[in-house]
Design a binder for these strands. Structure first.
Lengths: 195, 195
DNA sequence: TTCTAGATCGATCGATTGATCTAGTGTGAA
DNA sequence: TTCACACTAGATCAATCGATCGATCTAGAA
């Protein structure tokens, strides 16, 4: 084996692009095979079945996202500084994981029960990371929200929605939108002081 | 014709449930026909093709949502009162349009170019409604955001995400989560006054 | 050199897909 | 009564689906 896992990686990469573009159900295994120049059989050999290919993609992306978010937010600083770093890193990473995120949110209903559970687990880990930070902020006082869970959902909504509407080819730069989105979130969880 | 549009409505209703559950591509016209007890031909007679059925569902729901949001937010009050009413009505309506909203966001990539454009138009109308209110708030002063457009996207992210994570069978009541979500949004756009 | 495991191939399977065609119904206007 | 038309059913179409098959190739162990 001169190039270990070469075919496997090529298949996963092609599938990522096609799934993101046409959806899981909208992409056939023949499309994927044709895009790589390989035969259909390779998909079954390397991933078991079509869903195995999807799950492999989601697993890789999810683990990378969670790991990098943990690393970025675990650096020293005040709770608010660490939280801000978490949000900004999340926005930044999502930008690079556009396709993976699209698959993540769009194709979950086409998964088997086991696949769905695995997918849900990844989402819950991100949610829990936010909850921990929000709990720390709550204990430090000066926050608006009552429920860290709802606040975490709200933040994920804003961050993930940014992934949906932001277009690099548009007028606004990523830095500009990222700053504005972060501000919105920080104000969203902060107590407004009456003058 | 004893029951005008009876079959048409039944088809649309069955399709709504199936599309929301299994997705557009994951639902066959045979599934829809079987669910209504009618034959496949009815779908083609009433809606032209499978996509026509989907577009009819989206059109009805979108027009109703936009109309009710405009009505609710056009009632008298201060800019902030009217905006708050907009958000709360949106949350309330989304609750009743769960299935339609799911289809709306999940199946847009399976549409033809014309269908995609129509879908995009509906989304833009909602966005513009928010932008108008945010612009009024900006002119009235005391807001945090620089860009009403980004602020509108952020709000839509939070509202639409609520649709995704809220489960009626869960511990938190709709009123509870709705209040918390509205608070988050109002703080998100408000200027924080330094003490 | 022989044996084995993994990788890859092309052919093919039965099932299902969206769509079309033909052949009727029933109803209301002329 | 006749005619036109909206509506419906059922058979059928070509295309495509995910999956599996046996065969072949290659690299390294024994």
């Amino acid at each position: 084996m001169a190039e270990p896992n070469r075919s496997k990686d090529r298949l996963a990469l092609s599938a990522l692009g096609l799934f993101a573009e046409r959806g899981f159900v909208g992409t056939s295994i023949r499309d994927i095979a044709k895009a790589t120049g390989l035969s259909i059989s390779n998909i079954y050999h390397h991933f078991g079945n079509k869903e195995g290919l999807l799950l492999a993609i989601l697993k890789t992306a999810s683990e990378r996202l969670l790991h990098e978010l943990q690393e970025a937010s675990n650096q020293p600083g005040t709770p608010i500084e660490r939280f801000k770093r978490l949000v900004q890193t999340h926005l930044q990473l999502s930008r690079g994981l556009r396709k993976e995120a699209k698959i993540f949110f769009l194709d979950e209903e086409h998964l088997s029960p086991e696949g769905y559970r695995a997918n849900l687990k990844y989402q819950r880990e991100i949610l829990d990371l936010y909850r921990e930070h929000l709990l720390a902020l709550q204990e430090a006082g000066e926050v608006n929200f009552k429920s860290p869970t709802i606040a975490a959902f709200n933040i994920l909504g804003v961050v993930n929605w940014h992934l949906r509407w932001y277009r690099p080819e548009g007028q606004m730069s990523f830095e500009e939108t990222s700053r504005e989105v972060t501000e919105f979130i920080l104000h969203g969880i902060s107590r407004v002081r009456e003058p």
